[in-house]
Nucleic acid binder design. Structure first.
Length: 263
DNA sequence: ATGGTTGAACCTCAA
């Protein structure tokens, strides 16, 4: 039995955010980190600075947009780049691997669900299809009955408590019934929202718009999630949203979410 | 407040 910490963090450009990311890594010292929105190719990823802090890397990069990675103090194997279910999808929004921990293994995935832009955009049906592909893929992965964590930026707030003004935001992107229904279906496969398991009634957000002083005004959404398999949630010790990086100079618009598991 | 800001890369798009 040992404790491992697993975090998810949408950095909104790993190159622009490198100094903030390194400060946070040195402070929080997570064992495994799921990154989203690298906005660079794998060869441009600042591997040296991360590796010298003891992390192994699995990267699925893309120029300008998207890009996801897994940082792990444990060796990574069986790396899967790209979400199955649509061979024509060239966006780098998903990476999965198996981390070998002493005496066992944890399956981990970093997902960057499409934002969808607006409900009448053609990007919104792509978002809905992506959530359905996640459901199809994780139906299969959960049948393996492993310790597994699907984390990332889901661009989707599950419940009214997860948005700053549910009445105003109802039906808008990131809080539309069609996408919340699909996130609910994914959870209903047997995934547990770590933050909500630990804090049933707490309102805290993980993203705030850069515009109009969103953070200062508390205009946020909880859209970054750590979803745990049954075997993983059995060992869940804590889950927090760390707002400190959001308060720094030149922050990402997201805050990291961190959980500790006994495995 | 139908605006506002940020990042990458190009003079605009995605978020």
């Amino acid at each position: 039995m040992q404790s491992i910490s697993i975090a998810t963090f949408n950095v909104n450009s790993v190159k622009a955010r490198l100094s903030n990311l390194l400060v946070w890594l040195d402070e929080a010292k997570p064992d495994i980190v799921l990154l989203q929105e690298l906005k660079c190719m794998e060869e441009a990823f600042p591997a040296m600075e991360i590796e010298e802090r003891g992390y192994n890397l699995a990267i699925h990069g893309q120029k300008t947009y998207n890009g996801v990675a897994i940082l792990s103090k444990f060796p990574l194997d069986d790396i899967l780049r790209g979400l199955p279910g649509d061979d024509s999808d060239e966006q780098a929004r998903y990476i999965e691997a198996v981390a070998s921990i002493p005496g066992g293994a944890v399956r981990i995935a970093s997902a960057y669900v499409p934002n969808g832009q607006s409900v009448d955009s053609d990007k919104f049906p792509y978002k809905l299809r992506f959530l359905e592909r996640l459901q199809d893929h994780w139906r299969r992965q959960l049948s393996l009955h492993e310790i597994a964590v699907l984390g990332g930026d889901f661009n989707n707030a599950p419940d009214p408590i997860d948005v700053y003004d549910p009445a105003q935001l109802d039906g808008s992107v990131c809080y539309h019934p069609a996408e919340r229904e699909r996130l609910r279906a994914l959870l209903n496969l047997g995934l547990y929202d770590a933050f909500r398991v630990m804090h049933p009634d707490k309102q805290q957000f993980s993203w705030w718009d850069y515009r109009a002083n969103g953070y200062e005004r508390g205009h946020g959404l909880r859209i970054d999630h750590l979803l745990l398999s049954a075997m993983a949630v059995d060992g869940l010790q804590s889950c927090v949203i760390d707002e400190v990086p959001r308060q720094q100079e030149k922050p990402s618009d997201h805050a990291p979410v961190i959980c500790v598991l006994n495995v």
